[in-house]
Amino acid sequence: MTSAVLLRRLLPHRRARTLPSPAAPGELVAKAVGLRVALGGRAVLDGVGIGVRAGEVLALVGPNGAGKSTLLAALAADLAPSAGEVRIGGRPAGDWSAGELALRRAVLPQAAALTFPFPVAEVVRMGRAPWAGTEREDEDEAAVAAAMAATEVEAFAGRPFSALSGGERARVALARVLAQRTGLLLLDEPTAALDLRHQELVLRVCRERAAAGDAVVVVLHDLGLAAAHADRVAVLHGGRIEAAGPPSEVFDAHVLSRVYRQPVEVFPHPRTGVPLVVPVRPGPHRRPASPPLPERDNSPSLTGP
């Protein structure tokens, strides 16, 4: 019967999905091996290998165009690598269906957009969609409430998303990702639009998730934040991982100065000992009354290869 076939094609269908089992602390949740990704004929990632472990915050840092977001997208199984492999939960990323992946990893995109003015609470609740029809559906309300509390968005729960400021939208998007309650969190610049207080808040949330046993991968531009909150840091440069390890080992003035093509100083915080990374700046001169100008960071040399 052709109409039956047509009907089956038109109706959404849900394959039986296996629920993920919680990962043990330190267990490899996702990994990339020999990863090569070419976009528009150019290798954006070349020979990248990295492992993401449960209970750990891994920060990806590096200059613009180094391949941070591409690596994150590859770990999210958004991109098909031209060589190498991404494994999530012990299986090649391509072997999972979209529905199964959604139970295992949540992704915060760089820019949060919404085509229709859904209220904030409904946007956060969208994060629960993958669990519909599973036994963990019962957690929905609790997960939404907890995620909204953690990101401090309850105050505007009823407002339409389109009426929010950039920073508020970013937090709502993060709340949606937290509500998904997956064992792997991939966050692309979650702090970009946020003020000081909320930058700290977001990374504290990342830490809490890691402490609860999740694996968190976060793309950061602020090296100070990375040093203070990440267990491990991977410095990307030109599509390769230049250095990876605990921030205290990786944040070396020579390496960072070379990678960013900007002389930097690294020194321990006087109280906590956490490395601080600061561009080398000339001391205040000429007009002592005004604050010193930072080095211009949009010099033409940045557009080089």
């Binding site: 109706l11 269906s97 979209a98 992946l101 959604a102 139970l103 992704v107 969609a129 993958p130």
Partner: peptide
């Protein structure tokens, strides 16, 4: 046929409002 099938896709259409990639991240094919 069209009217009967359409409502089954409502939930996914909601997710599509987030954009294609985020919808895929939430399990929508």
């Amino acid at each position: 046929l069209g009217l009967a099938v359409a409502p089954f896709h409502s939930r996914r259409l909601d997710l599509l409002a987030l954009g294609e990639r985020p919808a895929r991240h939430l399990g929508v094919d």
